[in-house]
């Protein structure tokens, strides 16, 4: 519980943070600190420099413009969970933020820090994947030849604790299409009893017409795979079908074929079990989304 020695720098702008990151090997960005600091205290992470971006105001804030919800990377889970703007625009994210950790974690932890850490058991990567979020990444043009770039959530996560972020890039904002009236979105998970992290998490965004027929679907599962996994077979089976118990059960069962072979397992839940739970949590998510939650 005692970190190794490190240098502390407080960045006052994104460009200063990137400058510090570029010129100091072994430097790490500190946002809310809820991923980095525990690793440092266990001496699993030993950064030589910690660059505190907590004071950069331009990286905070929630707004909606032209049908897009924009959330600054430094926005805390608590700010998202308290935001009526998020509630209206993307209720699935609002609800998920409220379910992260406990009040202390939500008050400090940030959406950008969370996804940059890319913990496979985290809820936000799955939710942001299913809502097709776009991540704005700022780099140092001179060195990387990439200034600012935008990456979709589906491409952002590369593996456990690994993203497309280069050593000298910083995630600055996340953009999410505002959900339409006829879009139902929900996230369900089996939570680890110790941490509330997702053993298996499932997110759905369904477009449903007046006859309860699904006209478009995006589904993704996380927690059990190295990165969030989309379920194209499930999506295809849902579209054009009435959302009945039977149709939902039949469609969600197809997630098994979309999962691939790289399934995570641990002493709490084996890969075999998690694989079987993917369909169950997807079913829960759809039931909640469509008001069939009595199941």
């Amino acid at each position: 519980m005692f970190a190794t020695e490190f240098e502390y720098k407080k960045a006052s702008s994104i460009s200063e943070a990137i400058q510090l990151l570029s010129s100091n090997e072994g430097a790490k960005i500190l946002a809310g600190g809820h991923s980095l600091l525990p690793m440092m205290k266990l001496r699993l992470a030993r950064p030589t420099m910690v660059i505190d971006i907590g004071g950069i105001e331009e990286m905070r804030g929630i707004s909606v413009e032209n049908g897009t919800l924009r959330i600054g990377a430094l926005t805390t889970h608590a700010q998202i969970a308290d935001s009526h703007v998020v509630q209206e625009a993307a209720g699935i994210l609002w609800e998920t933020a409220y379910g992260i950790g406990d009040p202390q974690v939500r008050n400090r932890g940030t959406i950008g820090g969370n996804v940059s850490h890319a913990d496979p058991a985290s809820d936000l990567p799955t939710v942001l994947t299913v809502v097709d979020a776009k991540f704005t990444i700022q780099g140092q043009g001179g060195i990387t030849r990439r200034g600012s770039r935008t990456v979709s959530a589906g491409d952002f996560f590369v593996g456990p604790f690994t993203t497309v972020l280069a050593e000298n890039e910083v995630l600055t904002a996340i953009e999410i299409p505002v959900l339409a009236e006829n879009q139902k979105a929900e996230y369900a998970k089996m939570a680890h009893p110790a941490t509330s992290f997702a053993v298996v998490g499932a997110g759905v965004v369904l477009t449903v017409d007046n006859n309860n027929v699904c006209t478009a679907a995006r589904v993704a599962v996380g927690g059990l795979t190295p990165t969030p996994t989309r379920g194209p077979s499930v999506e295809a089976a849902l579209v054009g079908k009435e959302l009945t118990d039977e149709n939902i059960a039949a469609a969600t069962a197809l997630i098994d074929g979309d999962l691939g072979s790289d399934i995570l397992g641990d002493i709490f839940a084996s890969a075999e079990y998690r694989r079987a739970m993917a369909a169950i949590e997807l079913k829960h998510a759809i039931f909640h989304a469509t008001g069939l939650a009595h199941h």
Binding site: H192, P193, A194, T195, I267, F268
Partner: peptide
């Protein structure tokens, strides 16, 4: 010890 922290040992 595989349950050596609060993240693995569920209280």
């Amino acid at each position: 010890l595989l349950t050596g922290s609060m993240t693995d040992y569920a209280l």
